Simulated assay, not measured.
Amino acid sequence: MKFGLQLGYWMAQPPPHAGELVVAAENAGFDAVFAAESWGSDAFDPLAWWGSSTHRVRLGTSVVQMSARTPAATAMHALTLDHLSGGRMILGLGVSGPQVVEGWYGQPFAKPLARTREYVDIVRKVLARQAPVTNEGPHYRLPYTGPGALGLGKPLKPIVHPLRADLPIWLGAEGPKNVALTAEIADGWLAIYYAPRLAGMYNDWLDEGFARSGARRRREDFEIAASCQVVITDDASGELERMRWIMALYLGGMGAPELNFHAQVYRRMGYEREVDEIGRLFQAGEKERAAALVPDEMILDTAIIGDEAHVRDRLKVWEAAGVTMMLVSAPDVEQLHRLAPLVDM
């Protein structure tokens, strides 16, 4: 099982030690470094900037929000960074949620599965560079022929010859239909809030996709990168307290109350009552009470916290559940160095 470093997205300011973390991750034997985006920093520029100090580690987006860019624009970003890094780019894509898609990007959120399929198909056509790229839609028509079109659009193929036509595309997916689609059309799954005890359920979703006609991969050559808070500490209770606030934010504030994909994930884990009450309190502004309601087991289903021996034991459980990469974060180089011995387990 490999390790990837998740840089995430920026808060009010750029993180002060990210460049050092990226270099330390490469030196420690991490397989990849990922950057994310929400509605502030983007995912590509940090990889290009900090990744320029690396030579081996793969550079991935986790994830690029599809509504932020047309498929052709995303393909241009990916092929450019793939050239600059010598073939180390992983393109991680995700649909985000309706609050961001419609509120920030001004795009419709409807039919996310159909849009994902079409989006990935266009990106692959650009990277293949076998012919001028066309697409009949309905979501991304090339050439464009909708309202306001002059009728002068011309099918094009990239001027730059992509370094790899098979540049890996991973999808961020949380629900059963999206995970099945990921297994069908992608090279890997970026799993958020993965719970090893539900591996059987995830495998059913994945197997549905692998079994479809024309599926791109088999399980043996498909990557599952699971985001996980892995913290080596002698103060597990203090770390759990910190994570309660983060959990309350994602369950109560990162999505519309009637359509919060993170909340749906935890409902499927069996926490329906807790999710409903945490969400209600968070939306009412009672964030402290909402965080207090997050039980330890809700955090520990999707995180590993404890001394080194405990962390090593739990990592074996995640690997046995089918995870091929642990996607971890570290606040500073010291914490990353504490994780480094785990890379060569």
Rank of each mutant, 00 (worst) to 15 (best):
K2A: 12
F3L: 01
Y9H: 13
Y9M: 10
W10V: 14
M11E: 11
Q13W: 05
Q13K: 15
E20F: 14
L21H: 04
V23E: 11
A24D: 04
E26H: 11
A28H: 05
G29Y: 00
V33Y: 13
A36Y: 13
A36H: 02
G40V: 04
A43I: 04
P46D: 07
H55Q: 14
V57L: 01
R58S: 09
R58C: 09
T61A: 06
V63L: 03
R69A: 04
R69D: 02
A72E: 14
A73G: 00
A73T: 13
L79C: 06
L81K: 02
D82F: 10
D82I: 04
G86A: 06
R88G: 07
L91E: 00
G97F: 12
V101G: 09
G103N: 05
G103V: 12
P108F: 15
A110M: 04
K111Y: 14
R115G: 09
R115W: 12
E118L: 02
E118C: 09
I122Y: 04
V123R: 02
V123S: 05
R124W: 10
R124G: 00
V126C: 03
R129G: 05
V133I: 13
T134I: 13
T134W: 03
E136C: 07
P138R: 10
L142Y: 12
P143R: 03
G146M: 07
P147M: 04
K154N: 13
V160G: 06
L163H: 12
R164A: 13
R164N: 11
P168W: 07
I169F: 14
W170P: 05
P176A: 04
K177Q: 12
V179Q: 06
A180T: 03
A183T: 04
L190K: 01
A191W: 00
Y193N: 14
A195C: 08
A195S: 07
D204R: 14
W205P: 05
L206A: 13
F210Y: 05
G214K: 02
G214Q: 03
R217K: 14
F222V: 05
F222T: 06
E223C: 08
I224V: 14
C228M: 01
V230M: 00
V231F: 02
D234N: 07
A236Q: 10
A236L: 03
S237G: 09
G238K: 01
W245Y: 14
I246N: 10
A248W: 01
L249K: 03
A256P: 05
L259V: 11
H262S: 08
H262N: 11
A263H: 09
R267I: 05
E274C: 08
V275L: 01
E277A: 13
A284E: 15
G285C: 08
K287E: 12
A292Y: 01
L293Q: 00
V294Q: 01
P295E: 09
D296I: 08
E297M: 06
A303I: 05
G306C: 09
A309F: 03
R314K: 14
K316A: 12
K316G: 06
G322A: 05
V323C: 00
M325I: 08
V328N: 02
S329W: 11
P331D: 11
P331N: 01
E334C: 08
Q335I: 08
L336P: 07
L339G: 06
A340N: 15
L342K: 03
M345L: 15
